[in-house]
């Protein structure tokens, strides 16, 4: 008896520490990002970050304005969301409500496969297929722009959106659908007016996770967006995202320099953005949760 109690305690402790690990890691990431980025706030000062030019290596004056990087990320993310959400949600509805079991057996593994493609491979696909396509379609001088980047980002967000939305849609009680059908609604009316609204919390969560993936994505956007740090709202302009900036410049930056600290500050901004997104997602999920 005593022995089994002890064993219980030990197992509990092991499980607890495993679970606490994730909290610890998040805190540590915050701490170390803050530690490295903090020096920037003292010298040259936080206001430098709000400049409109990112020109960290210069003989004249180094500029660390992250606004163009922020808008670059924002533009790519917004466009990718616009592409990915309708496609993802419609696909999820189709797979959950319309597709025959046999079709579902085909779709599901392919979508999971799509989720597992390394982003650098998606980048290759972008370089050799999507970028030339976008270039020819719109008659541009280069296909390396925000549009190409966001198309590929959408491609990567879609599997997340589809699989989580599909779970949510499938968990809507049959009773709601029966009620709708018994009133003379068609299957389509039932889907759009009952099933989808009833699973909205899950769909929103799926979309948020998809956007999270898009914001954090680095390799693909670095390969296909052209990487010009300019403030723009044009999808045909070349943009540079925060993630790509960190990835591209971290390797060459002198340790402890202003530039080095600035990159960490970008990391903090990214972290805060995903954090905010998660919080919004949770708020929305709670609000729409059905009793």
């Amino acid at each position: 008896m005593q022995k089994s109690l002890l064993r219980d305690k030990i197992v509990r402790l092991i499980l607890q520490s495993a679970a606490s690990m994730s909290i610890l890691i998040v805190i540590l990431i915050f701490v170390f990002l803050g530690k490295e980025g903090f020096s920037f706030l003292l010298d040259p000062g936080i206001s430098e970050l709000f400049g409109t030019k990112w020109n960290p290596v210069s003989f004249d004056k180094e500029l660390f304005g992250i606004i163009p990087l922020f808008t670059g990320s924002l533009l790519a993310t917004v466009l990718a969301t616009i592409f990915a959400v309708p496609v993802g949600v419609v696909a999820a509805v189709y797979i959950a409500e319309v597709a025959s079991p046999a079709e579902r057996e085909i779709f599901k593994p392919f979508i999971e496969l799509l989720a597992g493609i390394p982003s650098v491979v998606v980048g290759f696909f972008g370089l050799i297929v999507v970028a030339p396509f976008v270039k020819n379609l719109f008659g541009l001088s280069s296909g390396l722009n925000a549009l190409t980047g966001s198309l590929l980002l959408a491609l990567m967000a879609i599997p997340t959106i589809v699989s989580i939305s599909e779970d949510a849609i499938r968990s809507v009680p049959q009773a709601y659908k029966s009620a709708s059908l018994s009133l003379g609604a068609t299957k389509l009316q039932t889907i759009w007016k009952v099933t989808v609204p009833a699973s909205l919390s899950g769909i929103v969560a799926a979309v948020m996770l998809g956007i999270g993936r898009v914001i954090g994505e680095t390799m693909t956007v670095m390969m296909v967006t052209g990487n010009a740090a300019v403030i723009t709202t044009s999808p045909f302009a070349s943009v540079r995202t925060m993630t790509a900036t960190i990835a591209a410049e971290m390797g060459e930056v002198p340790f402890g320099s202003h530039h080095y600290a600035a990159l960490f500050c970008i990391g903090i901004v990214l972290l805060l953005m995903t954090f905010g997104l998660n919080m919004i997602a949770q708020r929305v999920m709670r609000k729409y949760r059905m009793g």
Binding site: A175, Y176, S178, A179, S180, S182, V194
Partner: peptide, 10 residues
């Protein structure tokens, strides 16, 4: 039709 378990929409 009215069902066994009440099923109002949310």
């Amino acid at each position: 039709m009215v069902f066994q378990k009440s099923n109002p929409f949310p």
